[in-house]
Design a binder for these strands. Structure first.
Lengths: 330, 330
DNA sequence: CTGAAAGCGCTTACAG
DNA sequence: CTGAAAGCGCTTACAG
């Protein structure tokens, strides 16, 4: 392995000159050429540790995820990794298994590892989080949740909730059930529901019941079974695709057909939703794009550049087979 | 941020003594206690770069994956990350988007970053791979594929293929189609099929047609449509769950019911297969466990300990609703 | 524009 | 068991 000293000797200059060349300092045109050639020939690449030891910073971005085995995480990571590569940065990934303590712990660990920045696929932002952010000297970007004191990138959950609400009403449904998650999760539990409610208020004349369940498909199956217990909506709006998948399963268990007996919508746009029978109508969130944007944003922050405190990522309604059109009298 | 010099001064000893304490060298009991206390009080943690600069090695394991958005990858990464944490190691992840050039490139990049080891979720092992492995001075572990010259961890694909073949025959099916992938992929394309064929040979009296498709669900839908074009098997054995999902979709498109008109099996044991209608009979591979084992193995290699060249990970048949029992005359 | 020197925080022979 | 010193490979004022 060549070092900067080897290159300097070959070029007949001091190490500092090579270093300056590497870092864009002032070097004569002639010398630049010479050093460039030698570096190419030798295939020299600087030792990142030695660099980091001085610069006290690496080219690694720490990414903290609540779980690895979800479509959202996978897609977002794909986007992040892809974009990071363009910037010659690496992605350090840590899975917290939805454990908040572990999340906090990882924030400090990453800081110790001197990552250039931290991307946190957040589920909630507690005071402990805020304290950690302020203690470490590393820029942090929240993805999926927002907080006024932290740089955030979110899917426009309120608008998306509104859009799916409006859509289902346009299809003639008036007797609705909303199967969501705990409001502790601001983006998914609260915002999506709020947007949906706004659409309901605007339309008027709807009967809506609200239910809460967990994030896993099997929890959702149980949750949906409870929905069908006594109340018979013509459409069931679910706060995530996994929940919708669980709900469809529950409907079948009850002997109900989707969408003949009940329409179901999801939220997310997971690939699998296209393959279901019937194919699921859902709100597609642009996770890969969001991941790329997140990567760009954190790199800008790491370089000391300013970015907006809050960035929105887009969405679109994907109308498929799981929603029936209903005739609305009058 | 405290340095080793600060601790040394506080303890009234030389830096080398503190270093020895940290690395388990010989230090008097009394001194140990004192240093320990001081380290606790100050919250000192060694600078990893400075350590790496000398040791020329980090506590990071580089993990290379062909794609991030697959159940197999997600689960395996979950296992790896989980186990790595136990050993105070970190997971550096790079996604190659199924691009072999990028795979090779990443191997060198990781080596340059001085990762302690590389886990490669492999799809194929070319000569270029082998050359890269020999050029870098970092232990490598293949997961999912095997090669005699490289440490490998594989699901026992041949046995698993045999098991599902045997199972389907036991259910009375004799007219079969196998929907696999290119044999370039040794584990999934070749081994699974070979195991299946062994079961067929053993049983005798079966008519089997073999088909090939891609890895994505939509490719599989197209592939399965081709299967149904003229040939009507009573059971369709798919080489992955994604393929099975695509095949079920194709069956519905053709107006066929699963399993009444055709039985379908998958391979992998993805969570989603339990939620399908009908729930998919499949071979469950223990990805999380495999990930953990992979992490343990690479750490052992990184520490210079010997491990078996080849490790097998387990599997089990999950019998669900997508396979019908057929009566076999005679 | 260029070089000599100090220093980043640690580890590791080598003496004692 | 303990310490002084050199060195890992780079960067960065400071002179020139």
């Amino acid at each position: 392995m060549k070092t900067i000293a080897d290159i300097a000797k070959l070029a007949g200059v001091a190490k500092s000159t090579v270093s300056r060349y590497l870092n864009g300092g002032s070097v004569s045109e002639k010398m630049k050429q010479k050093i460039e050639t030698i570096i190419e020939e030798t295939g020299y690449t600087p030792n990142t540790f030695a660099q980091s030891l001085k610069a006290k910073k690496t080219n690694m971005i720490g990414t903290i995820v609540p779980r690895l085995d979800s479509y959202e995480t996978s897609q977002t990571l794909t986007g992040i990794d892809n974009e990071l590569r363009e910037w010659n940065c690496h992605m350090l990934v840590s899975n917290t298994n939805q454990n908040v303590d572990r999340e906090i712990e990882t924030i400090y660990t990453f800081a110790k590892q001197k990552v250039a920045g931290i991307i946190l696929l957040a589920t909630q932002v507690t005071d402990t989080h805020l304290q950690a952010f302020s203690e470490i000297n590393v820029p942090v970007l929240l993805v999926g949740q927002q907080h006024e004191d932290v740089y955030s990138l979110v899917h426009n959950d309120e608008e998306a909730g509104y859009a799916i609400g409006k859509y289902i009403i346009e299809q003639g449904h008036r007797r609705l059930a909303f199967l969501g998650v705990s409001e502790e999760n601001i983006a998914i539990g609260l915002k999506r529901k709020e947007g949906f409610k706004r659409a309901i208020r605007e339309a008027g004349g709807c009967e809506v019941h609200y239910f809460e369940t967990g994030f896993t498909m099997s929890e959702a199956t149980a949750g949906a079974l409870a929905v069908f217990d006594g109340f018979f909506p013509s459409a069931l709006i679910c706060a995530t695709d996994d929940i919708a998948i669980g709900a469809v399963k529950a409907a079948y268990k009850k002997g109900m057909h989707v969408p003949a007996n009940i329409s179901v919508t999801g939220f997310g746009g997971y690939d699998i939703t296209a393959m279901m029978n019937p194919a699921l109508t859902t709100v597609k969130l642009h996770f890969i794009e969001a991941g790329k944007t997140a990567a760009r944003n954190i790199i800008q922050l790491a370089n000391g550049q300013e970015i907006p405190k809050l960035t929105y990522s887009g969405f679109e309604i994907i109308a498929r087979e799981s929603v029936d059109k209903r005739f609305v009298p009058g």
